Amino acid sequence: MKILKRIAVAVVVFLVIAYLGVLVAVYALQRDLQYFPNGEITPLEELSLARAQTIRIQVGDGEVVNGWYAPPQSGMPVIVYYKGNYGSFSAEHERFAAWLDEGYGFVAFDYRGFPLSPGAISEDAILSDSVEVFDWAREQGGSDLMIWGRSLGTGPATYVASLRDAEALLLETPFLSAVQVAAERYPFLPVHWLMQDQFPSNQWISDVEEPVLVAHGTADTTIDVSNGRRLYDLAPNPDELWIAEGADHSGLWDVGLWEQAREFFARY
């Protein structure tokens, strides 16, 4: 019996030490686990995006972010686009082409640490970059601004909308908060204590005065659709909750998101 007790104690000690080791590793490597910035850059000169030009916007302490800007046709708004977590915004040029064809302008960019913009990734940097880009778009003059955030970009989109005045806010596959998604994915880890970049959209949205459209798919395995529903319920000025049956995290554009967005923007 003594031998069995010693073995049991040894096993428990080993498991505790192993678990603590996992916590230390997760804390130390968390941004490598949270962000996926690698991806190919699509050069603007290889595309047929009328009116679009490359831009370089100063952010932070002398750093810069790089992106594309296209002015709108007369009387049309500009879409300020906040990209998701993978690769470069330039991979989403199909969207930009559709917007330009309808007369919209747009500004899109890579956060610091993503392919086109040098620097280190963090929540603070992403939020700062996002505010600076919005302010830059406002300085271009005259046009109404529509904010569109996708996935990770729904965090900074909500944050910017809570601080600045735009005509409307569209959130594509949003999270309630990034830490909520982590808790759903890793229920065995105390992520609320460990996670530095929590993106609390559920808090920011209480200060959003703009009308809000939330779009989500029922087959989203990256950010569960319940996140979108709950965030929409918190919006002070909800306009539309568009749930696409069977659509996954990357599938909303292909099942009619732009048609929904166009009608939403036209209302404002």
Rank of each mutant, 00 (worst) to 15 (best):
I3A: 15
I3V: 14
F14E: 01
F14G: 12
L15P: 01
L15G: 02
Y19C: 10
Y19P: 09
Y19I: 11
G21M: 11
V24Q: 04
Y27R: 13
Y27V: 06
A28P: 00
A28W: 10
L29T: 14
L29S: 11
L29Y: 10
D32W: 02
F36W: 05
F36C: 00
I41R: 08
P43L: 11
E45D: 14
E46C: 00
S48V: 11
I55V: 15
I57G: 06
G60A: 12
E63R: 13
V64P: 00
N66P: 02
G67W: 12
A70D: 08
P77Y: 05
V78I: 15
V78G: 02
I79S: 04
V80K: 02
V80D: 03
Y81K: 03
Y82S: 09
G84N: 07
A91T: 09
E92D: 14
F96L: 15
D101C: 00
V107Y: 01
V107S: 04
D110H: 11
Y111S: 10
G113N: 01
G113L: 04
G113S: 01
L116K: 14
P118K: 12
I121R: 08
I121D: 00
D124C: 00
D129L: 13
E132R: 15
E132D: 15
V133A: 04
F134D: 04
D135R: 15
G141N: 05
G142H: 02
M146H: 10
G153M: 04
G155Q: 07
P156V: 11
P156C: 08
T158L: 06
V160L: 09
A161E: 07
R164V: 03
D165G: 05
E167W: 01
L170I: 13
E172A: 08
F175N: 03
F175D: 00
L176W: 12
L176G: 08
S177Y: 05
A178I: 08
A183C: 05
E184H: 09
R185I: 01
Y186G: 02
L189C: 09
P190A: 12
H192M: 07
H192I: 01
M195S: 06
Q196M: 01
D197L: 02
D197H: 01
F199H: 06
P200Y: 02
S201R: 00
P211C: 06
G217P: 09
T218C: 07
A219M: 01
D220I: 10
V225A: 08
V225W: 09
G228S: 03
L231M: 10
D233T: 07
L234T: 04
I243E: 05
A244S: 08
H249L: 12
S250H: 13
G251N: 13
G251V: 12
L252I: 14
D254V: 05
R262H: 10
R262W: 01
Y268W: 12
Y268S: 05
